[in-house]
Design a binder for these strands. Structure first.
Lengths: 195, 195
DNA sequence: CTCCAATGTTGACAGCGTTCATACCATCTG
DNA sequence: CAGATGGTATGAACGCTGTCAACATTGGAG
């Protein structure tokens, strides 16, 4: 059946193949034709499943978001409990996971948060990373760890900071080792007493 | 002379044309052939001045950096003086200018800080924006406005925050109006007494 | 068993970046 | 003033791309 006229799961296969090629060479260097050839399928077969090339790449971008979300989920799971220490560990861990994702999966990160994917227009449940960050921030606040009067707008500020740090590291403007310095700096800014 | 066989200043003309097309449609939607056609020049003429298309786009990206730098220079000039108030105004103004640039020149911002341009490998004097931010941070610190023990790593943190905010606004993930909230939030985090 | 809708193919089109051989022409040399 | 030089532009060509319309094949529902 593997050799039959119909592929059976072309859509998933194309996303997967595109995903690995994006990981290797970046979104700009993947071609629909190349993917089709690797899958031993005619180039135009893709158009039964995707509106165009960008549509396929958007699907890959969603995989990137999912991968980031998974990393963050793991971090949350690794630091359970309702103690202040756990809350702080979760928060810092989430930041580190975000940066680690950007470094490990540079190309995927660029696609996911690039112009093609328009993160801004995603459905809320696809924006897991932001929600997790919000939750961690709430926990940290609930334990009274934040400096007073600092909470307003902090969700956005923290997300922006982390995302900017990740972006600049990906572009080579800031060396990857600076990640810890950043987390520390951010902690000093936010927390009442620095650990 | 305008009709002569030799153009005379093709390189500059191409960068300029590419710049306006990037501004309008984004770097992904400009073609070397299109630019050549607009300039009434053969497509291959470009290769006397640029190694390839990416090389031309990199030049455009530098224009973006210059434009940002110019905005920031204007801000510094608009708030002269060695008073604490002026220092704070300069600092906040620089942040706002960065965000405004990203919003006004979305496509240019994406190109300048995108994968193609590799901001990280630029010569130091091309990185004016970061230097200006550093200087403003020094001023603000010299006047004792910062919360104690917060200065270490703050250059990078502030740059990352602002850049991340700009990026997320550009991608549509955060609405442009949130800029002021961000500046306020950042101020609360950094400054000893909030204005 | 037949027909349908989904899925894949074939072939073509226009456009792209890039290259190579060639033509042009301002300027410097004799 | 003649001629060589070398930077600059041209033209045609190559291989590649995304995309489309017309056609072929198939599995499954009626």
């Amino acid at each position: 059946m593997a050799r039959s006229y119909h592929h059976g799961a072309l859509a998933e296969a194309m996303v997967e193949q595109a995903l690995t090629e994006v990981r290797l060479h970046g979104a700009d260097h993947v071609s629909l034709r190349g993917i089709a050839q690797t899958l031993e399928v005619s180039p135009s077969a893709a158009y039964n499943h995707f509106a165009d090339k960008d549509d396929l790449l958007r699907a890959v971008g969603l995989c990137g978001l999912a991968a980031l979300d998974e990393r963050m989920t793991r971090v949350v799971a690794a630091h359970p409990g309702d103690t202040p220490e756990a809350a702080r560990a979760r928060f810092a861990g989430l930041g580190r996971a975000y940066l680690a994702f950007a470094i490990d999966e540079t190309h995927l990160f660029q696609l996911t948060f690039g112009p093609l994917c328009a993160v801004g227009e995603m459905s809320p449940d696809e924006t897991g990373p932001y929600l997790k960050l919000q939750a961690a921030l709430d926990d940290v606040d609930r334990h009274g760890l934040l400096r007073p009067g600092v909470r307003e707008g902090l969700d956005v500020t923290v997300w922006a900071s982390t995302h900017g740090m990740a972006s600049l590291m990906v572009e080579g403007a800031i060396p990857p080792e600076a990640g810890d310095v950043f987390i520390d700096s951010m902690s000093r800014l936010m927390f009442a007493e620095h650990a």
